[in-house]
Design a protein around this nucleic acid. Sequence first.
DNA 1: ATGGCTGCAAACATTTTGCATCCGC
DNA 2: GCGGATGCAAAATGTTTGCAGCCAT
Lengths: 145, 145
Amino acid sequence: MPISNQDLRKAGLKVTLPRIKILELLENSKQHHLSAEDIYKTLLEQGEDVGLATVYRVLTQFEAAGIIQRHHFENNHSVFEIMQEDHHDHLVCLNCNKVVEFTNDVIEKEQHSVADQHGFALTGHSLNLYGYCSDAECQEAFRKK
Amino acid sequence: MPISNQDLRKAGLKVTLPRIKILELLENSKQHHLSAEDIYKTLLEQGEDVGLATVYRVLTQFEAAGIIQRHHFENNHSVFEIMQEDHHDHLVCLNCNKVVEFTNDVIEKEQHSVADQHGFALTGHSLNLYGYCSDAECQEAFRKK
DNA sequence: ATGGCTGCAAACATTTTGCATCCGC
DNA sequence: GCGGATGCAAAATGTTTGCAGCCAT
């Protein structure tokens, strides 16, 4: 279900235009892993009058509220996505930047076992696989590399 | 075995003082995951007259030459480490920034299977577990959070 | 001696902050 | 109307680049 205005209020955030627009984008855009820049540019294109600073502020607040999640890929590409029910990891295409989500229970379980073995209190993790996706163009780029 | 001057020459790199010093640091420092800033400051403390730009340039060249590896942790902490024989992943303490290496064959194998399933040509991956290490101080920070 | 390497300063990209104004409640 | 939220510009952060001089080969 989509994030409602109530959800925002519950997080102590007023329901303002920039916040609504940013949420909409994250929920409805086809590739729902967006960078701050992506969001900013798209809003400008839509004729919204927002500042890049606001985009960053809103994204930071949303992250703190647990509404969205932030990822730093090795690409040097930071992206945000709506928080989802089930945890998942990412496959990132180094050519077209496409992101594919996947889940794998075996890996998930192993991670906890590793943390335990080292006496770590696990609070999060990131698993990103980098490669070239199945698009002809990207496979081409892979061969050329 | 340590990286030799020959190894540098083989990579098309002249054997210069900054390069030697940076290699020494990466090989001998206790916590062998260092940021560019760490390296720069340590060299200054040792009385070496290097520029931060040189540190970055050398690290980039070393990475291209396969001598070292670069990691971007979600901390917003980028670190470098000497390339090792066997691949390994990382446990990162969010309190003291300590990095612990681990290997897990089960996870390793699953990753390839996931990439295959999605038609990706896998070229690399990063798996980082974040949490609080077993140091009393860090466990304390974890409880307070 | 020559071409790569260096330090410095300036440029860059990304993200954060200060502040006067604005707007949701 | 109040206090949080915004846009803008400036600052902070992390990294890269241009350039004149330096040094390994």
